[in-house]
Nucleic acid binder design. Sequence first.
DNA 1: CAAGGCTCCTGATAGC
DNA 2: TGCTATCAGGAGCCTT
Length: 294
Amino acid sequence: MPELPEVEVVRRGLERWVAGRTVTEVEVLHPRAVRRHPAGGADFAARLKGQRFGVARRRGKYLWLPLAETGTSVLGHLGMSGQLLVQPEDAADEKHLRIRIRFAASDSDSVRGAAGTELRFVDQRTFGGLSLHDQTPDGLPDVIGHIARDPLDPEFDDAAFHSALRLRRTTVKRALLDQSLISGVGNIYADEALWRSRLHYDRPTATLTRPRSAELLGHVRDVMNAALEVGGTSFDSLYVNVNGESGYFDRSLDAYGREDEPCHRCGTPMRRRAWMNRSSYFCPRCQRPPRAGA
DNA sequence: CAAGGCTCCTGATAGC
DNA sequence: TGCTATCAGGAGCCTT
């Protein structure tokens, strides 16, 4: 389940292996993978052919590859199970291969070690996809104008985030998952940051003091940076990191998936609650629910 | 307009 | 063994 750190790892892999390469052929193998491209798979392939990729960019969980000299970008979202893989052209197709992008083998294609490789979008559950969009003047694909800056963005405005929390009539975990308030936080890291902050997921955002929201934001950043450290190294190895598997989940989770296991802080069994068609994991002792009607 | 709920999808797993 | 039910979840879209 890729969240911001995993997507950033993928972005770095794309920067290393794909930037500067020229597309020669595009195969769309599943229509759902281009459903955000209204003109359809054939149009997507035709318009991409012959274009040269610039350096991959990211906001929250969205990433995009600007096409040099056109003012358009290939926008990608990995959804729940998406992967972008750089594979040798002769490698067997993955079971859930959805889109294949082949590159020129010309002399101008000077990405070190990338000769004979192609870019593949693989996605089991088909929540993710690729699409082509015009860019706004600030370089953002036009369809993600509503996505807020993410907490690792140097221009993220902490004070504005706090003000927005105070104004909202919602609860803290909903706010963390609201990509128009803060982007890049998914269910897993939301639970982790709330656990670290000793905040219950149902606490109304309007009750958060400035120090509390600052602490929460700090923990969100800590959790993401820790995951990035584990997954975001060694981009010289083709197969390891372009797929965004950080290995972080197995080792370092304090909340997510730990129902009935002892809280790493106080030993109380962790609980799971059905919440918004998914789960919230929390420590009933460290993360006390808000008073009814508070 | 804001808030919250529904829905898309496939594979792993549990239960009978 | 083989079937069915349940769960996982990002974010666009719809309803209230």
